[in-house]
Structures are given as structure tokens and as C-alpha cells.
């Protein structure tokens, strides 16, 4: 069947609601058919695993680590209220929020600067220069900071020379530096996409009506770049909340974050049900944060 046949049929259909419904149903089946392979795959390797996490979180712990799927209890969920867990969760949320804010402030000025270059070729070149670190291996980029922040690393030497800081490795500031470095490109790219699309004649109109530069920015530019702010914040906040590699390489025992804590439940601590409950909790925080953020964005735009 060809599209021209379909076109003829559409005209026919417009006059006949019963045929219209039939065409819609056929269309719906075709979409479903295209989607089936990915659908089946994701149900099997994403949705069912997601459900099993919650199932395991109610299981009881066995000596081997692998939980026994009997003797169901809520012990693992109750443990989330323990002071140690609360400290780690608070610290993780604090780190994720502060990192998102830092990325947003630095990234906005940066993306704005790139997006307002006069020549298209300059903008493209600067954007490629952002894309390269964005695509570069995350582990390698974190390793770079391990090198710089170690006792004989350049940043440490610089700090000792100026007397401003000492060795930062295995402290919270080191983790912040690593996270900022790792996720800044994730913030810049969506912000750039949003700012570049802004119609500057709107800003000009605002200025013509005697708005100050600050007012024009606050009332016109900022609201117009909101989609970029939302996308960038989500792309930074969620991986920061579940960060594992960065705090593991740059942090120490006093900077354990949720990601490390979960991994240790499946390693040294051998408590899979508790690890499952923690993963289930982080998933819920993530979903709530995403929904709230999207809602707040949708309302104000």
C-alpha cells in the first residue's frame, strides 16, 4: 500500500468517522510493530530489573550475600532512618545540589558567552572545544585531578607556594572539583542550545522600552533560556546524586556518598537487601526531583 492510496483514503475518511477510526487503529498497530523489538528488550533488561530491586529490598540477608527470597521483612527500609544513613544521604543531596548550582552559574556565563559570539564559525569552533571534553572518558578526566591534587601534584604545589591551601586529595573540596570538572559540559550544552535560539530582538525591544540591562536579562533572557536550565540541571543533579567514580578516586572515608555506600553493600558489606533498598530510595528521590523540576518549569514558561 502506498501513501497516495492513503491520501485518497484520508479524503474518504474525513467524511466517514467509522473509516477514520479504522485508519487510526491501523496506524497505531504499525507504530506498535516498529516499537516491539526495543519494547521487549527494555521490558526484559530494564523494567523487570527495576521491579526486582524493590522485591529484593524486602528479602532477608544471607551469609553469602545473595539474599534469600523468603522471610520477607522491612528491615532494610527501616535502616534508612539510621543516623549513619541519614548523614550520608544529607551529604549526597548537599553535594549534588551545590554542584548543580556551581555548574549552572559558571556554565550559564560560559554558554552565554559562546552563544553571543558574532561569527557563526567562531560559535561552532568554541562549541566543538566543549564537545571534546564532553565525549572524553570520564574516568581519565577524574584521574587527571587525582594527579593534580596529590601531594606532589601541581595544584597542591601552587597552594603551598601561595599558602592558600594544602593537599586536597581525599577531602570534600577534591570531590567537588572532580564533580564540577566532570559534569560542567553536561550543563553547558543544553544551555547553549537554549540561549542560541533566543530571538534577541525581544531583548532589544525591552531595552527600547527603557528596561535596564539587568532587568532585560532577568525578565527576558533568563525566562527564554529556561528549557536549557531545566535540562542541564537534571543532567547534572542526577548523576551527581549517584556519583561513585569521582568520590571513590578523589574522596576519602569521611566523604562517602550514596553511590559509594550502595556499592559497598554489594562488595565488602555483603548486604544485598539493604543495597537494594538504598537503590530503590535513590530512584524515588530522582523521580520526584525530575517531576517537580519539570512541573515548576512548565508553569513559569
Amino acid at each position: 500500500m502506498t501513501l497516495s492510496d492513503e491520501k485518497a483514503r484520508t479524503e474518504e475518511v474525513a467524511a466517514n468517522p467509522r473509516l477514520e477510526r479504522k485508519a487510526e487503529r491501523r496506524e497505531s498497530w504499525r507504530g506498535f510493530f516498529h516499537a516491539i523489538p526495543a519494547y521487549v528488550y527494555l521490558i526484559f533488561f530494564f523494567v523487570l530489573p527495576l521491579i526486582i530491586v524493590y522485591v529484593f529490598s524486602f528479602a532477608s540477608r544471607s551469609r553469602t550475600g545473595k539474599p534469600e527470597l523468603e522471610g520477607w521483612n522491612t528491615d532494610s527500609w527501616q535502616r534508612l532512618g539510621e543516623p549513619l544513613v541519614r548523614t550520608i544521604v544529607t551529604r549526597s543531596v548537599f553535594v549534588a545540589v551545590l554542584n548543580t548550582v556551581l555548574c549552572l552559574v559558571i556554565g550559564y556565563a560560559f554558554a552565554y558567552w559562546i552563544a553571543t559570539r558574532r561569527k557563526q564559525s567562531t560559535r561552532t569552533l568554541l562549541l566543538i572545544l566543549v564537545l571534546i571534553p564532553f565525549w572524553s572518558n570520564f574516568l581519565v578526566r577524574t584521574y587527571a585531578w587525582r594527579m593534580l591534587l596529590d601531594s606532589d601534584g601541581y595544584i597542591t604545589q601552587l597552594g603551598e607556594m601561595t599558602g592558600l591551601w594544602g593537599r586536597m586529595l581525599f577531602t570534600l573540596p577534591a570531590v567537588f572539583l572532580g564533580l564540577l570538572y566532570g559534569y560542567l559540559p553536561f550543563m553547558v550544552l543544553p544551555l547553549y542550545a537554549a540561549i542560541e535560539r533566543i530571538d534577541w530582538s525581544l531583548v532589544e525591544a525591552g531595552r527600547d522600552l527603557y528596561a535596564s540591562g539587568t532587568q532585560a536579562f532577568r525578565k527576558i533572557t533568563l525566562p527564554l533560556s529556561r528549557p536549557g536550565i531545566i535540562a542541564g540541571s537534571i543532567l547534572v543533579f542526577i548523576p551527581s546524586l549517584g556519583a561513585y567514580v569521582t568520590p571513590d578516586i578523589l574522596g576519602g572515608a569521611k566523604t562517602t556518598l550514596l553511590g559509594n555506600f550502595i556499592v559497598s553493600q554489594f562488595g565488602s558489606a555483603r548486604n544485598w537487601p539493604f543495597g537494594s533498598a538504598l537503590s530503590g530510595a535513590i530512584l524515588m528521590i530522582m523521580l520526584v526531583a525530575t517531576i517537580v523540576y519539570f512541573r515548576s518549569g512548565a508553569k513559569t514558561v
Binding site: L50, V53, L241, G242, Y244, V263, G275, S279, I282, L283
Partner: peptide, 8 residues
């Protein structure tokens, strides 16, 4: 987050 996907 990667960690959650890994656990799942």
C-alpha cells in the same frame, strides 16, 4: 544514575 542501573 549508573549505580542504580548497575544494581538492577
Amino acid at each position: 544514575p549508573d549505580v542504580t542501573m548497575a544494581v538492577m
